[in-house]
């Protein structure tokens, strides 16, 4: 799932400062699941902005709408009626949704209400951890199902660096939670699987071009000829 966090409201207030009527657009996909951009958060942000603007003697009207996914044009079409009424949109979808909704309504300014953080797993209520960086060339088969690109702070491919101590990464800081050393995790998993010999295999340098955007992906077997 894509994980995002709410943007500081002062930033959002700056973005909408010139406007009198704004749509806050939520998404029922990943950002609902990660508790950042569903109908609930749309309502909370709307209320907060309305109060902030009232306080400043500059009232704002806010419409609220949440649809299935902002990364699909058909769902974005549902925003039409409300978009037509407003001066600007604040989207609480991930970076993909924000842009894609904006593409649908090019005449209306759109602003991000969230910072898109990572592709992560929901460890427990309110906790997320990154598991994939979408590098485009998966090596999980060689590393016991643990991603060295994501889990190793340096994305090393062939074992840990000298900064791995007691299973922790040297990048860990007191302010942050300790980061486990990705290669320690890989070692432990391979060891549990009885596949430690895989550590001896040299993983060649990665083709990072596959990780660089803008990327596109087309499946000829599925594309629809609409002519």
């Amino acid at each position: 799932m894509i994980v995002a966090e709410g943007k500081p409201v002062e930033k959002i207030l700056e973005m909408v400062a010139p406007f009198k009527k704004v749509l806050i657009a939520g998404c029922r996909g990943c950002v609902t699941v990660c508790l950042t951009g569903g109908e609930k958060e749309v309502g909370i942000l709307a209320s907060q902005i309305r109060m902030a603007r009232s306080k400043d003697g500059n009232p704002i009207e806010i419409l609220e709408q949440t649809e299935e996914r902002q990364c699909d044009a058909e769902y974005n079409a549902k925003f039409l009626e409300n978009v037509e009424q407003v001066d600007a949109i604040v989207s609480l979808a991930c970076g993909i949704g924000i842009q894609y909704l904006g593409e649908k309504y090019p005449a209306t300014p759109i602003f991000p209400g969230v910072n898109t953080l990572m592709l992560g797993a929901n460890i427990d209520v309110g906790k997320w951890e990154e598991r994939c960086m979408a590098c485009g060339d998966c090596v999980l088969d060689k590393t016991g199902g643990i991603c060295p690109i994501t889990r190793c702070s340096k994305s090393l491919l062939n074992g840990p660096c000298g900064g791995s101590q007691y299973g922790k990464c040297e990048v860990s800081t007191p302010a942050k939670e300790d980061i486990p050393c990705g290669w320690q995790l890989i070692y432990d998993r391979l060891s549990a699987l009885g596949q430690l010999d895989k550590m001896k295999e040299i993983i060649p340098s990665k083709n990072w071009l596959r990780a660089k955007g803008p990327r596109t992906y087309v499946r000829e077997d599925l594309t629809l000829d609409r002519s």
Partner: peptide, 8 residues
């Protein structure tokens, strides 16, 4: 916290 952010 939401109130504090907007000075209420």
């Amino acid at each position: 916290a939401l109130l504090n952010q907007v000075g209420l």
